[in-house]
Amino acid sequence: MLLHGLLVDLVPFTREFHEEKMHTFWNNESRWWATMGDNQPVTRAEIKRMNEERIQGHERGYTGIHFMMRARDGNIIGSAGLNWLDYWNRYGMLGSWIGEPDYWSGGHGTDALLLLAEYAFNWYDLRRLILFTMGPNIRAQRNVERCGFKLEARQRDGGYAGGEWVTSLAYGMLREEWQGRETLVEQFNLRERAEKRYGALD
């Protein structure tokens, strides 16, 4: 099971992610962006407990589907997935977390989002995708808006980050608004960006 992109692949999680990378990502500044402002230090024991709970989650009805994000240089840089899948109402909620700041603003998040959206629409017969981010996360807003998401709600003081109340933004995209991965890959010059960073594509 692999979603093959240009800058990243979305692949199954490995032990290295859960035992090493998660501890790094949950303790660096990426956490603050991914959780709308949370940043208290997290121990390995807590990470272990989170993973155990995650494994049991599916038994309790948790519907999420998650991938590990691997950059083309082989580095594990984060995760992306459907944090919630509602089969009854046919929507999915996307989430993405790049834990290595060196890979921010390079198109990796965009590549992952396009892979995920295509996967969600083509394999799960969803009608709609939603996602949430916070006001200060301009990078995420720019990224999702150009992929076709529309801002649908602004929840005032819906989050708290860096000592301030921040707006929680709800974005949505209907299936008929999805332009398709290939179109957007062209539009964003993702091939050129990938070749510039990692050399010629296979």
Binding site: N89, A153, Q155, G172
Partner: peptide
């Protein structure tokens, strides 16, 4: 009123908006 989730919920033969 802070926004509208478009066609978000299945309701009686249709998908309807949710007001937040």
């Amino acid at each position: 009123h802070e926004g509208t989730l478009r066609q978000h919920i299945r309701y009686d033969g249709d998908y309807v908006d949710i007001e937040m």
